[in-house]
């Protein structure tokens, strides 16, 4: 039963007010893409023991999708941020780097 702060409305939302949406920052591959890229887009998902980027929708609240950077083992939330980005914002990456020396977004993806 996580609590995540919706970056749009500021609500500290109970998990029961949220709908999960799987891994964040997937790049869509459409017509013209290779079979490999398309297969990765459809099916390949990170399942890390550690830092993970996730999609959540504030379904019972403002209805907006947001993204969360979270540790799957300690449940620490490094931050939540609006979904209108293709990669985690700098301040989120800095927060994670400070907490987890040696971790990097590139290495993770």
């Amino acid at each position: 039963m996580l609590t995540l702060t919706c970056p749009y409305c500021g609500t500290h939302a109970d998990e029961t007010e949220l709908a999960p949406g799987g891994e964040a920052h997937l790049k869509r591959f459409g017509p013209g893409s290779s079979d490999e890229d398309f297969e990765d887009y459809l099916f390949r998902r990170a399942n890390p023991k550690g830092v993970h980027f996730e999609r959540w929708r504030h379904a019972y609240g403002c209805g907006k999708w947001f993204l969360a950077a979270r540790c799957t083992t300690t449940l620490e939330v490094y931050g939540t941020y609006p979904a209108q980005t293709t990669e985690p914002p700098e301040h989120i990456l800095e927060t994670i780097a400070a907490k987890r020396p040696g971790w990097s977004w590139e290495a993770d993806t």
Partner: peptide, 10 residues
């Protein structure tokens, strides 16, 4: 929700 997903996230 599907429409909002594509409009908000893609």
């Amino acid at each position: 929700a599907w429409m909002e997903d594509w409009l908000q996230c893609e």
